[in-house]
Simulated assay, not measured.
Amino acid sequence: MSNGELLRIEPQELEFPFELKKQISCSLQLTNRADSYVAFKVKTTNPKKYCVRPNTGVVLPHSTCDVIVTMQAQKEAPEDMQCKDKFLLQAAVVSPGTTTKDITPEMFSKESGNRVEESKLRVAYVPPPRPPSPVREGSEEGSSPRASVSDNGTVNQTSEYNTLLRAHIEPKENTTEVKTLISKLTDEKNSVIQQNNKLQQELELLRRGSSKNGGGIPFLYVVIVGLLGILLGYLLKRT
């Protein structure tokens, strides 16, 4: 029985997060249920593989004692991650005032008429805990862009990353196109300015001629000059 009248053992199965070439430990807590002093002794079917501290001791009435079981580093993983090792924990009532130094093998012999309980504990290997994700949540200055994984397994960068990417790439890709457009608009502006100046001169000549002849400026010229002025203003804004 795992939990007797003398000692309560928790847990009732030794679980080791198995990792190759690494020592792994787990703990047992022994609680004395009796009003008497209880001595204990821990045995295993594979003593070279495990280190138990303490492997013997005395638990005072209604007190607890922690036992640490350490598995030595293993070079190979067991088949199917199954372990056949077992532990045996013996408990016996001893005289008040008994210490660990006073414990003898005869105390755990039922043939001597002592009150002895035995609990068998199995060993189980469990997967090691998963390490935390290296990607930090939240947006922080100096941190790497966040990424998320969609249902089909595609990694999607966040909008912050896309914005930075466009800011660094698009200007480089469009430099030649922008320069060409600016040059074209500048040529168009200069051409319109020249035409406007020419029309202004012709308009001035017409005004002078009309003044001498007593006539007015042709309406068509006025309209053309006005339209050219509007076009010139539009081109100046674009450049």
Rank of each mutant, 00 (worst) to 15 (best):
S2I: 07
S2A: 09
E5W: 07
I9Q: 04
E13V: 10
E15T: 08
P17N: 02
K22T: 09
Q29T: 14
L30W: 04
D35E: 09
Y37F: 15
V38N: 06
A39Q: 02
K43R: 08
K43S: 06
T45W: 01
N46L: 07
N46C: 06
Y50W: 12
Y50T: 08
H62E: 14
T70L: 03
A73Q: 05
D80M: 10
Q82R: 08
Q82N: 04
D85A: 06
L88V: 05
A92E: 00
P96Y: 06
G97D: 00
T100N: 13
E106W: 01
F108V: 00
E111H: 13
V116G: 04
V116I: 10
V123S: 05
A124V: 04
Y125T: 05
V135D: 09
S139H: 13
A147Y: 00
V149S: 01
S150E: 09
T154Q: 01
T154A: 03
T158G: 09
E160F: 13
Y161N: 12
T163R: 09
L165N: 15
P171G: 00
K172D: 00
K172R: 01
S183P: 01
V192G: 03
Q200R: 13
L203R: 04
R207E: 13
S211R: 08
N213I: 07
G214M: 12
F219Q: 12
I224Q: 14
V225Q: 15
L228N: 14
L235W: 04
K237N: 13
T239V: 08
